[in-house]
Design a binder for these strands. Structure first.
Lengths: 158, 158
DNA sequence: AGTGAAATGATTTGGCC
DNA sequence: GGCCAAATCATTTCACT
């Protein structure tokens, strides 16, 4: 998976603004506009770029609470059933299997404390094998990106 | 902030695929293409849609580790300095102030265990006021979206 | 791979209901 | 607010290096 500096720059620009025109990007990386189009096509083909999405303000859509929920499951035999149920819940934005005390870590955005309560007690705790949930409520998000850092230089602090 | 069913549908379509054409969306919501364009313009103006980004595959960009890091800070007087430093670290994708034992919860994507070690010990633990970090390593991500659920019906499990 | 120029396709604008 | 039709702008394709 070789990516040169111009590919990285294009990826960075598209993460910031997927509406940037190929002509603008072409100027930024000093290539012609069709060359940029061709590079983007290949990045999509190779799966480096997997799609494009609108960023939305969750609060303006009535999701006022963000929380992280650690879920302990007593035995791996329950994992499949747990995943099947959890992945169908619309307020669950992320579901990671993790190392450590908990089996899974979820990120949820939900309307309010009532809907969070319902998700925790009414839904998660009723799934077979779930022995414990540990919820961390977000007070303020200083940064909440998906923007993966790409740069020819090694990342700062790493 | 009133959003009708057609607005919600457009938001959903744009979260899935920001490249969907206005004509396609117009068919889906049974409006004309300029009507869709006008609704999108207003959603952007109101900040419901805050931008558009490319989704990228972090692993293909050499970020093989995802981790969540809880950071305890001994006194709020250290918060500003902590934020200033942490928000400048490119591998930190999210930084949330949270309720509970820890003061902050970070989500990071970093190259490997070495770069994670360097971030934890070389960077975070040297920031004034940081008394503890608690790292949860992600083994597999079953879902990792930003796609906020929008629908006229109440969310399932909430 | 890259380029410039032409063709195609999408969005924006204007006039009207 | 929404619609249709025209104009503008972006992307895709083509012939060539």
């Amino acid at each position: 998976m070789y990516l040169d500096e111009q590919d990285l720059r294009i990826i960075d620009l598209l993460q910031r603004d997927a509406r940037a025109t190929q002509l603008e990007m072409a100027r930024a990386v000093k290539l012609s506009q069709p060359a940029v189009a061709e590079r983007i096509r290949k990045l999509e083909e190779r799966g480096v770029i997997s799609g494009y999405s609108a960023r939305v303000d969750a609060a303006k859509l009535g999701k006022d609470i963000t929380a992280f929920i650690g879920v302990s499951i007593e035995h791996p035999k329950y994992f499949d059933e747990f995943l099947k149920k959890v992945l169908s819940l619309p307020d669950v934005l992320e579901c990671h299997r993790v190392a450590g005390q908990d089996s899974y870590l979820l990120k949820v955005k939900t309307a309010n404390t009532r809907s969070l309560d319902s998700l925790l007690v009414g839904t998660l705790r009723t799934i077979a094998g779930v022995t414990r949930t540990q919820t961390t409520i977000v007070l303020t998000s200083m940064k909440e990106d998906t923007h993966v850092h790409v740069s020819p230089e090694p990342p700062k602090g790493a």
